[in-house]
Design a protein around this nucleic acid. Structure first.
Lengths: 344, 344
DNA sequence: TTGAAAGCGGTACCAG
DNA sequence: CTGGTACCGCTTTCAA
């Protein structure tokens, strides 16, 4: 396979069509095509077509100083709630003829910095960051000096940047209210990583409801290092194995963690929801098929993706970057992992 | 936010360091750094560091005619077996200081063509294609004339291109042998889209075993339009609602389809595995937590990602593109959705 | 409406 | 070891 057939350049097309490169450039640009005689334009286009011409996007980008790419930073592609967000973003971005550059941090600060460097070097038109931690404000600020940045899903704490998240506080409230209204009075949270705004919000929304009722929240001093099945199991075990009565309900900050808690129950001969009710978060795929089907909080992720991409486009276009922070409302999905406590 | 602080260029660094741009260029390139006096080199590097210099990758790429990016085409990011593959690819690619460009086809041929165009225009160094259909051979061939292409997961049928897949035929065999050895004699496949090599392979592996035993495979004329829960349910329903006795075992070409079949059983008051055993495929997240936990076929996906990326790198480096086709062996994971037939 | 020329920011080659 | 120079392919003034 000979792979360097000296690619066709604009000059070639110009020569073939008997015009100046500048003219060829105009003919091929839809926006400026009508500066030419239709004949010239069509001739050039036809020649380009036949010769299999493709612009060299480096040259174009170098000249225009814009890459036509939008960078997306996520913590972990494997997180099942991301795909709908990515899809929403992609729908909007592709409609603009731009391409998506996706990178993963694995929640590592150093990797985030590296990725930012890459994105800056590649002059992406904007960065959509959905992997922020509370500590990342500096890094984001310095990035934002160079490239438009939009925060998705997770905020950095302050409202310095345009941000679109799910309303995690409301989500935590919904979970708490549901459990309290079922009659639970002794509840515990299985908390996700506390340096991420999403989990912090859920924690606060939940706690806020607790403080206005006769129910009380079990003090748990640990939180998950990552929102995984293993960590959910670990936290649940710590609570279940503590001396004294166990709580009658768990609010897990994530469906995977909820599943981990389910495992811990099962190991101890407890059943859900008879002994302990569990609310998850995200409505991950198959969470309606685990045993028992999970009561959870569903997020408008596709919509979030679309909005965040639209916002990014607006910022690229130079819309005033009022640091809005918009929160999309979640929805409680009641299934079979929650019920009234059996010994109230 | 002023976003055009006239970015620092190599010329600026050269001026600041009192050297010629060409020298600055050499100082900043690790590969050519030792052509200079250590003092000059370090001075330039320090200046660059302090000034916050980043190469303009367009300029570099224009000159080098290489983008430093590898394009990955997938059918659907939401498919839960993709993340480990992507992770494997990313590990290898990032180690090479290259970036990943990810695009989705949604299994649409037109979209594939568009994406290919984008990738060609952006001069990605290589394309890793894991969204191929049997009909795509032409498109791939024409792409391969311009850019190194490596096929992942799905082949196009012929062995014209370097390809690394899972061994789907073996996977189908494992499923069939397992069910037959449990005593099943009347079995059916819930087939995935038949224009994708993976599903075709599974079908053939399964059928091959059938033909060497006394078991027989129920004729089912439909296959899934997409490997989803809904399609799995639809196919299962068609079989269950057909007149006469139903088979005692299903081989679903995908875990999601298996879950759909589970739904269909439940609706009809049948239970798994007592009435019908089900084998899934992929070992998707949570497939060990559905009810009952799925017997399935596990794929070495991370490994596949790593190999395919390594292969892509080799092809970029100009290694002879002998159109190898390598197949990674899957593994049967026995859980509780399979058992001996109750009325043999 | 079209052509000429300059330059985007680097890198590579040749000379010194 | 370093400087000079040309040029990668395209877009964009400015003139004609």
């Amino acid at each position: 396979m000979d792979r360097s057939p000296a690619r066709v350049t604009l000059k070639d097309i110009a020569r073939l069509a008997g015009v100046h490169p500048a003219t060829a450039s105009r003919a091929l640009d839809p926006a400026r095509g009508d500066m030419l005689t239709p004949e010239t334009r069509d001739r050039v286009r036809r020649v380009a077509q036949e010769a299999g011409y493709h612009v060299n996007s480096f040259a174009r980008s170098l000249r225009k100083n814009s890459s036509g790419m939008v960078g997306v930073v996520v913590a972990d592609v494997a997180n099942p709630f991301l795909p709908p967000i990515l899809r929403g973003i992609e729908q909007i971005i592709r409609a603009e003829q731009k391409l998506l550059l996706i990178a993963e941090t694995h929640d590592d600060g150093g990797t985030l910095l590296e990725i930012i460097d890459h994105f800056v070097a590649r002059r992406v038109d904007a960065v959509i960051l959905s992997a922020a931690h509370f500590g990342d404000e500096q890094a984001v600020a310095s990035l934002a000096e160079k490239i438009p940045v939009v925060l998705a899903v997770r905020s950095v704490g302050s409202a310095r940047f345009p941000t679109i998240t799910h309303d995690d506080v409301l989500g935590g409230q919904l979970a708490a209210e549901h459990l309290v209204s079922l009659g639970h009075r002794d509840l515990a949270q299985l908390r996700g990583p506390m340096d991420v705004s999403s989990f912090r919000g859920r924690e606060q929304g939940f706690a806020a409801v607790m403080s206005t009722t006769t129910a009380r929240e079990r003090f748990v001093d640990q939180s998950a290092a990552a929102p995984t099945v293993e960590e959910g199991r670990r936290l649940a075990e710590a609570i279940l194995d503590a001396p004294g009565r166990h709580p009658t309900a768990f609010f897990a900050h994530n469906d995977l963690m909820a599943v981990g808690a389910l495992e811990a129950l099962r190991d101890r001969g407890l059943t859900c929801p008879r002994d302990i009710s569990i609310v998850g978060y995200n409505d991950a795929p198959l969470s309606n098929h685990v045993n028992p089907p999970l009561t959870t909080v569903r997020l408008p992720s596709l919509e979030l993706g679309r909005r965040v991409a639209t916002l990014a486009l607006a910022v690229i276009a130079g819309a005033t970057t009022e640091p809005t922070i918009e929160k999309l409302p979640p929805e409680l999905v009641i299934r079979q992992s929650t019920g009234a406590p059996s010994h109230p």
